[in-house]
């Protein structure tokens, strides 16, 4: 079982996200890896998520390989130029990291080093082209590689774009990402299965597996914060009210997430759980969802 073989054989695939912490303490990563192994096909490791400086994605992915949990290296274009991006890709391959998710990356301004320059030497579509080129045995300048990788590359799409222009732009970009070599997609967090079903209808012709992103709600405040500040994420008021009415918010958050996964299950080829601090509760969510 691997992410590539499972997706290619049309299996329903579960992935989860791990966010490394700030510092060198990797105890929790080891614990989470043990808990997730066997429950998810692969685990994404975020790359300086929200532009907050942390332990790197590549090193963390390598730790996951040691724990026999298949990693997906998230790679943003924010912090590295094309030389570093290509070099880190080669490094990832020799460290046993075989999946990569190409992203643009949030602006540095959103994080904890607001004065940093955002590199964006390449963008996500161009990065996918570069990965395809490395897989063919060449760097982006056409120089031959001594030994080549064989990455399984993926990308992201935002199905909840909130203007007509943005929705169209997302579809145009998704098609370009496929042309550039994306073999699977993981989406921004989804909370409305009906809307997501309409999105899937639009992209089914693309013929590339889509894993619906889900974020378990930990509190009413978190839901409201995301509605206000996170692009493409919309938690319906009804869901917020159900959480507000619950005595045990943790229980309710897990139940709501499991219910959502059950609703999304038949619409796409997998789910991608982004637990944001609730990594250890992923097995519980999956139990509840019957997966």
């Amino acid at each position: 079982m691997s992410l590539r073989s499972d997706l290619e054989s049309g299996k329903f695939v579960i992935t989860a996200e791990i966010g490394p912490g700030k510092g060198t303490d990797v105890t929790e990563i080891a614990e989470v890896a043990e808990l997730l192994r066997g429950r998810v096909t692969a685990a994404n490791v975020t790359d300086q998520q929200s532009s907050v400086m942390r332990l790197g994605s590549l090193a963390t992915c390598h730790l996951l390989v040691d724990h026999h949990l298949e990693p997906v290296l998230q790679m943003t274009c924010r912090d590295r130029n094309r030389i570093a991006l290509q070099s880190d890709l080669l490094s990832a391959w020799v460290l046993g990291v075989h999946n990569v998710l190409a992203l643009t990356g949030d602006l540095p301004h959103l994080g904890d080093h607001k004065d940093a320059i955002g590199v964006y030497d390449l963008d996500s579509v161009q990065l996918l082209s570069v990965i395809s080129r490395l897989n063919e045995g060449y760097d982006m300048m056409g120089n031959e590689l001594q030994g080549k990788p064989d990455f399984f590359a993926g990308a992201v799409v935002n199905p909840g774009a909130d203007t007509e222009a943005s929705f169209d732009l997302q579809l145009f970009k998704m098609e370009k990402k496929i042309k550039a070599g994306a073999k699977f997609f993981q989406t921004q967090a989804v909370y409305e299965p009906d809307k997501f079903a309409r999105f899937m209808k639009r992209v089914e012709g693309f013929g590339v597996p889509v894993l619906a992103g889900v974020i378990p709600l930990k509190s009413v405040g978190m839901a409201r914060y995301m509605n206000k500040n996170v692009s493409g994420v919309f938690v319906p008021e009804e869901t917020i009210q159900r959480l507000a009415a619950a005595e045990d918010k943790t229980r309710a958050g897990i139940d709501l997430c499991a219910e959502l996964i059950r609703d999304l299950k038949d619409l796409c080829q997998g789910v991608h759980i982004m637990p944001i601090g609730w990594e250890k509760r992923v097995p519980e969510i999956l139990d509840k969802a019957g997966l």
């Binding site: 992203l103 643009t104 949030d106 602006l107 963008d123 996500s124 579509v125 161009q126 992201v156 935002n158 774009a161 909130d162 943005s166 732009l169 997302q170 145009f172 970009k173 370009k176 921004q188 692009s231 493409g232």
Partner: peptide
């Protein structure tokens, strides 16, 4: 290559 995921 087009819009990122950050536009709102």
């Amino acid at each position: 290559s087009g819009q990122c995921g950050g536009a709102s």
